[in-house]
Structures are given as C-alpha cells and as structure tokens.
Design a protein around this nucleic acid. Sequence first.
DNA 1: TTTAGCACTCCACATGCCTAAGTGCTAACA
DNA 2: TGTTAGCACTTAGGCATGTGGAGTGCTAAA
Lengths: 337, 337
Amino acid sequence: MSEPRKLEVLRAIVEDYVHSREPVGSKALVERHHLGVSSATIRNDMAALEDEGLIMAPHTSAGRIPTDKGYRLFVDQISAVKPLSPAERRAIQSLLEGSEDLDDVLDRTARLLSQLTNQVAVVQYPHLSRAVVRHIEFVLLAPRKVLIVLIADSGKVEQRVIDAGQELGDDALSDLRARFLAGVAGTPLIMLPQHLAAVLAGCGPAQRPAAVALSRALEALAHSSREDRMVMAGTANLARSNVDFPLSIGPVLEALEEQVVMLRLLSDMAQDPRGVAVSIGRENPYDGLAEASVVATGYGPNASAKVGILGPTRMDYPTTMAAVRAVARYLSRILGP
Amino acid sequence: MSEPRKLEVLRAIVEDYVHSREPVGSKALVERHHLGVSSATIRNDMAALEDEGLIMAPHTSAGRIPTDKGYRLFVDQISAVKPLSPAERRAIQSLLEGSEDLDDVLDRTARLLSQLTNQVAVVQYPHLSRAVVRHIEFVLLAPRKVLIVLIADSGKVEQRVIDAGQELGDDALSDLRARFLAGVAGTPLIMLPQHLAAVLAGCGPAQRPAAVALSRALEALAHSSREDRMVMAGTANLARSNVDFPLSIGPVLEALEEQVVMLRLLSDMAQDPRGVAVSIGRENPYDGLAEASVVATGYGPNASAKVGILGPTRMDYPTTMAAVRAVARYLSRILGP
DNA sequence: TTTAGCACTCCACATGCCTAAGTGCTAACA
DNA sequence: TGTTAGCACTTAGGCATGTGGAGTGCTAAA
C-alpha cells in the first residue's frame, strides 16, 4: 500500500465531498479520478485512512466523508492555493476603489468577501497602534457630561461621552482642551499614557477631577476602543447552506453576534506560514462552531487586525483561502500609507 | 350568529395559534376558552370567518390559522397592549443607563429589544435635524486628501475623507478651517447650506476648489450620512424559530442585510395612532418578508428615526408592541436634552 | 340560532418491502 | 507484498399500504 496514493485518495475524497455534498464511495472515486488501480485497492486505502481517523463513514454502507483531522491534513499538506480568476481580481479592485471613509471600506470589504466565497465574512476594525494623535476635542453636553473626540492621522475618529466628575463651564473646558491638545498632539497612540501623565501634572487642583477623567477616557479611547468591533456580511449564506448545518444555524449566528467570541477566536488563530490561518470544526474553541471552519488572516500594519470568513467545515478551502488572502492584501494596500 | 362572538373566536384562534404553533380546531377552542357555546356553533363562526378571509385551513381536516388579514384585524381592533412586567422595565432601565456614546446606546438598545421580544431587533441611527454644529475639523491626510469631521452637540460625530480638488498645505487648510468654523459654529444642521454659502462667498479664488469641495462634503455629512445606517441584533432568534419560517430564513436574512431595504421599509410604515406601526406578512413590500411582520415606532425628536423588531407573522403582537413602545420611550429620554 | 350526530377527508405515523450503494473479507494473482 | 476479483452482508431511502385521530361540513332536530 503506497503512502502517496493514500494521500491522493484523501485529496480526492475531500474534493469530491466538497463538491457533491455526499459521502463518496470507492467505486465513484476510481471513476472520477484516474488513479490507475481498482476500487478494491481503494477500499483498502480507505480502511487505512479510517484507522488513522482521517475519514469516517456515516453508516455501515455509505461512502466516506473527511473528519476534521482529514480536512486539517488536506489543508496543511495536500492542497495548493488556487489563484483567483481575473474576474475576481477585477471585482476586488473595483469594489474597494470607490470607497470613502474607514467604515465604508470595511463594509465593502465584508460584502465583497462574502460574495467571493459564498460564506459569512468578518472584518475586524484595524488597530491604531502606529497612528498619531491629530486632534482632540471636548464638547460640553451637560454640566458634567463631556463628549470626547480623538482624531488620529490614520483617518480614524473615536468618540465617547463621559462624566467629568465635576461641574465644568465652557471656559474651564476650553482651558483643559488647550492643555491636552498641546500635550498630546503628534503623539503616537502607544505613547499616549506618558504624555497624558505630563499634562495631568501641569493641571491645577481645581480642574483635577475633570482632568483625570478626561485623561482616563482618552487613554481608553486610544488603547482599545474600536479594535474590538467588527463588520459582518453574508449571513444569508448560512441559510442557503442549511444542508451544511444540519442541526441549526442558530448557534453559529449566536457566535457571530457575540462579537467578543469571534474577535477572540480570530486573534487566537495561529498565523499559518502560508499567510492564512484555518480553524476547522472542533478545533474552534466555541461549541456552536463545531461544524464550522474559520479562514482568516491579518491585514494592515503588523497584520494585527483580522479579516476572514466563516463557513461549514465542508468548504472549498483552496479557493476560499486564496480569496481571503487576496482581499487582505488589497485591504492593506488601501489602508496603508 | 353574533358578531361580537365571532371576533372573540378570532381572538381565541390568534392567541392559541401564537401559543401552540398549531392549527386550532373548534373543539380545542371551546375547551380552552369558556365561550358558552358548543363546538358546532364555533364551526359555523369559523366558516364565516374563513369566508371573510380572516382565517384559513391548511388542509381539509385541519384546524384554522389566521391569515395576514386576520392578524391585521386582531392588531387593529381586538388586542390590548399588554403592560410590561416589572422585571422587563427594570431590564430596560438598567441596561440603557450605563452606556456611553451613541454607538453604544444603539447597540445596547438592539440587544435589549431582541432579548425582550425574542425577535430580531433593528435600530436606525437617529436623525440630526435639530442638532447644532459644535465643531468642525479638517485633517490633511495627503496633499489632496482631507479628513472632515463634523461634531454636533447631540453627541454625534460624522466623518468623511474627500479629495480636496487641489493641493493644500497645512497653513491653507488651517485658514479654511478657521473660516468655516467661524461661519458655521452654532448653526443648526438644517440651516447649514445657507451658512456654507456665506463662507464660500468670503473665500479667495486661490482656495476656491478646496472650499467648494469641503462645503459640499459638510453639507452631505450634515444632511444624510449616518441616518441611513442601522444596528441589528438577535438574528439568532430567526434560526430558533425555524419552524416559523418553513421555507428558509435565507430571504429574511438577505432583507436584513440589505439595510436599504429595511430602512425604506421602516420609514414607509405609517404611524399607528397607538404609537406603534405594524406591517404584517404580505403587507411588506419586500417578497422575502412575506412570512414576516415588522413592529416599529419612531423615537427621538419628531420620532423621526425608527426602532423596531422583525419576526414571524405568528408572533405575540400585544407583548411585542408593548416592548417596542417602551424601549422607544426610554431611548427618546436618554437621547433627549 | 344553536346543537347533536354522522359521514367524510386528510395528515401523520408505522409497517413492510425492495433496491442501490457500498463495504469487508477471502482467495487468487503478479 | 501489494493488488485484484468476487461475493456475502449491511443499511439508507424510496415506495406502497394500512390505520388512527383530529377536524370539518352538512343535515335535521330542538
């Protein structure tokens, strides 16, 4: 029994199953692929693959389907990333070109990726770490309520309303604004805490509570804020493939809505050497995604923010991986300097 | 055959069907509700109701289910809006109190409403019309690319990146900023166009192209921008009730993702005198929602922006309407002055 | 106008049967 | 030792058939 042929058989099973949605038997296999041996031989190979836990039979006399482990092996060793079709390249280019602000770019990206892959697309908001503070603005909404706006040169705008901790007049707030602005304009967001401390030190005790509150809020804005949000598109694709999620797509939708879960999942995925990370079925830490796979990769500076798709374990990995990778590249280019 | 009893029968059918998910027959009806007459009498009433198109039988020997028209009559004339339970009131109050910026408020609102009703919740971004310009900011991203930020005193922040139409230095942009700021600060957003025209008139020809571009962008920001976005939560509730959407929830998800469709739908819904609008089944202009109902109402100034839920036609209208109305009220209060 | 009774209809479910697909095993073969 | 052919065996799934129950419409009587 030859090892290379066994892998070839696994590959054929994965490809056929992805294509037909039905367990694939030994006879069909030798017909569709010219493997040069008889079905009996294939049966032996299949038995071996089953012993290794790479494929399984839903019931006694059905064909075989790949297990999570089988998909993993397929993704890691057998499959070659398919190049995108020219039409797809064009679609990527044209759809992302006309966009305006960041929200718009991410929104379009998600839609595009979901169309390209026929799966659910998710795009995390990019990280700010390298950006520089361009401007800050305080707006008095009520005697104690202040709207804080932080503008970074990356084109990113963050805002929050806070309780100032003390009554403030317009004048006092203007003064604070001037101080803060002078102290932090041009500062990289990572360095913000230090500069804020300096500003704080220079404040008189009368404004102390407000200054502290503002400082904290700014720090929070710069640090986390929007990085823990994401954009989503193509959930309807889940329903279309209700054959793929026999139980129910409910748990999957729940996972998608719990952005915390998804973001955690995305950042925990180890980066694959080929640039695209894949998490298959029960490899996912979340139970609701036991029959789903996630294909994701980083984009932007440090590839720190993630873009990816979620679909049934039975998906066309090579094509999907190619699409995710290509979209991430375009996205990096557009958001880049 | 008494007219009041017929309505009573319709009400009983709607309530039982909503509760049990199964066609309701004459015998079960007289058992569950003490109507004081026999099942045969009820059968006569039912036949009449069916003639009027208010109920229908899925097949010859099944019970009856309400038609869209039946639900409509139920909602308009029979049902009384149920008061919320104290626990629900508390949930609304506590969940919305801790929130910070607008995005956060809307996000929480959607989640809350979806939990309260077990349906999909949608919340449109509020309109700006009454708000006043608090501040504007121009940030030079590249020689011709300018990030524009518009801050309104409602706590709303809008942003966009535009092509300035000419090369600009930092100084030139600062100058423009000062001019614009002086010209429009404190202006209600509705009045913005007039004030912008005045600013434009005062600009020298050298900055003309950029000034025009900026003016246009500001106007656009103030006018439409985010009002055509919405927040959504609870899509997983669709899957849970997959019994309710026998065909597939695909079309429904599609409609939800096409925000344009949903927003159009929401704004087209006539305001009910009781303060909550309901659109039932095929009354919806969108085919994918033929088996869905939308319950929505306005909030904020003029009740111009909408908040509502989407669910199967077979839903508990009284309770749902109460929840939507209550949430809208709280929302108005929080966003109000 | 309401009621009781009855024949009728149709769905849902269970049963049994049959076929197609596919397997595992054994024995022969190169 | 690896490959092949053949065969008995297993199972899902389609199909026809039968049955019980729920619910209706109609008629005639109260």
